[in-house]
Write a protein that binds this DNA or RNA. Structure first.
Lengths: 85, 85
DNA sequence: TAGATATTTAGACAATTATCTAAATAATAG
DNA sequence: CTATTATTTAGATAATTGTCTAAATATCTA
């Protein structure tokens, strides 16, 4: 749970998620939306991966990142469960 | 948005929210659930206040903290809007 | 195999954060 | 008015985090 909320607590990481909502992308594609280095992006992606928010799949030279939508359902439930309603 | 997610990104603060879900409490009542100092608790409460997640109301000597439930609805919508579905 | 492209890992650094103790402020009770 | 209780503020410190550059690893192509 901590891993999850900490992953969401960074604006750049939330932006990555929004970007991936449109379509799967490689690291370099994602990178065009940001100013920081590839290493930094890699670090953010790692945090999102650990939080189970994205999935990485290598295809040859490239690694495709996608939203782990199944987890979003769970996240949503957890969220409602903790706080709500 | 950042203020909100950062507020939620700490386990102790989420615990505070869960505690307040049961009923409103004063700082010292909340404090019994934790090991850290009153100053630290005050700091966490401040962060939750800034994130609009709790409301503080002084009654004489005491300050009563309560969940700002109206905001939870908004938070939930925002959450669904960003990530979901 | 060598060179190019894609991505991650390692190590460093500055900014932020969670915590503490001590002191300050607010309100009540004697 | 003074002492007591409730809470916050100030200032310090250690841990965590976001970022960087440089180097390492993985894959493809010539």
């Amino acid at each position: 749970m901590d891993t999850l909320f900490k992953a969401l607590a960074d604006q750049n990481r939330r932006k990555i998620l929004e970007i991936l909502k449109k379509r799967d992308m490689t690291v370099n594609e994602i990178r065009k939306y940001f100013r920081f280095s590839g290493a930094t992006l890699s670090h953010h992606l790692d945090i999102l991966k650990r939080a189970n928010l994205v999935i990485a799949q290598r295809e040859g030279q490239f690694i495709h990142y996608s939203l782990n939508t199944s987890v979003f359902e769970e996240v949503l439930k957890t969220f409602i469960n903790i706080f709500g309603r």
